[in-house]
C-alpha cells in the first residue's frame, strides 16, 4: 500500500460525505412516512415538523380500514396482480418454447413486434382500450384490469423466458421429441422443471408491475368494486374533510409497501438478475 497523500485523504473524506448524503436522500422519506403514520391524528398538526413523535399509536393503521373500503382495494389489487401473473406466465411459456426452441420464418420479425409492444406508451392505447373494455362489458371489473395489464406484462415475460429457454440444452428437448412426447408434454414435463427459477423471477417482476400500476386502474374503474390500492391511495381524503388525511395515507403506504419489501428481501438475487436480463437483452 502506498502512503496516503493529503489529496487522497480529501478524496476519502469526500467519498464518505457523498455516501452519507446519498443514504440520507434514499432513506429519509421512508423514516418520515413511518414516523407520520405512527403519529396520533390529533397531534399531527402540532408535531408534523418534529423529528421524533412524542407518542406512538397504531390508530392510523386501524382507521385506514374503517373510514374507507381499503380492505376491498387490497383484495382487488391482489386478485388483479395474481391473475395477471398467472395468465402471463401460461401464455408466455408457450410462446417462449416456440421462440426459443423452434425455427420458423418470421421469428425475428415477431420478436421485433413483441419488443415494440413492450415500449408502447400506455397512453397511446388508453382511448382504444377504454372503448374495447366497455364493449366487452368489462369496465370496472378486475377481469378488465387483468386483461389490460397483459399489454405490459406479456411482452416482458415472453422476452425474458425466451432468452432463458434458448439457454436450455437442446438434447433435453430432443430426447423428449424422440420419445414421442407431444409439444405440450415436452413443455410441462421436461422444460418446466428446468424453468422454475426463470418463472419465479419473471412472475415476481410482473407481479410488482401489476401491483403498482396506476393509469389503467384509474381510467378503467369507477368505484370500489374493482378499484385497486394505487388509485385508492392516490385519491385518499380521510374519513372527514376536517381531518388531515396524511397520517392515514402514510399508514396505507406502509401497509402496501411491506409485502413488497418482504418479496424483495427473499428474492433480491433473482430480482436483480431478472431486471438486468430483461434490460440487457432488450
Amino acid at each position: 500500500m502506498r502512503k496516503h497523500t493529503p489529496l487522497q485523504l480529501l478524496g476519502q473524506v469526500l467519498f464518505w460525505v457523498i455516501v452519507v448524503v446519498v443514504l440520507f436522500y434514499v432513506l429519509f422519506p421512508f423514516y418520515w412516512a413511518i414516523k407520520t403514520s405512527l403519529t396520533p391524528p390529533v397531534d399531527l398538526s402540532r408535531t408534523a415538523l418534529a423529528a421524533f413523535p412524542d407518542s406512538i399509536t397504531f390508530q392510523n393503521y386501524v382507521d385506514v380500514f374503517r373510514g374507507q373500503p381499503f380492505g376491498r382495494n387490497l383484495l382487488n389489487s391482489l386478485v388483479v396482480a395474481v391473475g395477471t401473473v398467472l395468465i402471463s406466465l401460461v401464455l408466455a411459456s408457450l410462446s417462449a418454447y416456440a421462440l426459443g426452441k423452434y425455427r420458423f420464418r418470421g421469428k425475428t420479425a415477431l420478436m421485433y413486434i413483441i419488443l415494440a409492444v413492450s415500449v408502447f406508451p400506455q397512453i397511446a392505447v388508453l382511448g382504444g382500450m377504454y372503448s374495447s373494455i366497455r364493449a366487452l362489458n368489462l369496465y370496472n371489473s378486475t377481469l378488465g384490469l387483468m386483461l389490460s395489464y397483459l399489454i405490459f406484462t406479456l411482452p416482458f415475460t415472453v422476452w425474458v423466458l425466451t432468452s432463458f429457454v434458448r439457454e436450455i440444452p437442446n438434447e433435453l428437448e430432443e430426447a423428449a421429441v424422440v420419445d414421442g412426447a407431444t409439444p405440450l408434454q415436452t413443455l410441462v414435463q421436461v422444460l418446466f422443471p428446468v424453468m422454475g427459477p426463470a418463472l419465479v423471477t419473471t412472475g415476481l417482476l410482473a407481479f410488482i408491475n401489476a401491483w403498482n400500476e396506476y393509469l389503467f386502474a384509474l381510467t378503467l374503474t369507477s368505484d370500489d368494486r374493482a378499484r385497486t390500492v394505487p388509485v385508492a391511495i392516490g385519491s385518499f381524503s380521510g374519513a372527514s374533510q376536517y381531518e388531515n388525511p396524511f397520517a392515514q395515507i402514510m399508514a396505507a403506504s406502509v401497509i402496501v409497501t411491506i409485502p413488497l419489501i418482504i418479496l424483495v428481501l427473499i428474492f433480491q438475487r433473482r430480482i436483480v438478475s431478472g431486471l438486468t436480463a430483461g434490460a440487457v437483452k432488450g
Binding site: 434514499v26 418520515w32 408534523a48 395515507i249 402514510m250 402496501v256 409497501t257 433480491q268
Partner: peptide, 28 residues
C-alpha cells in the same frame, strides 16, 4: 438491498410520501 426498496414501492406511494414532505403548512 436498501436501494431495491425505492424501486419496488408503488409510484403512487412514493408520490404521496413526497407530497406530504412538500405539504404547504406541514411539510418538512
Amino acid at each position: 438491498t436498501a436501494i431495491l426498496v425505492p424501486w419496488a414501492i408503488p409510484t403512487v406511494v412514493s408520490a404521496q410520501m413526497w407530497n406530504w414532505m412538500y405539504n404547504d403548512s406541514f411539510g418538512i
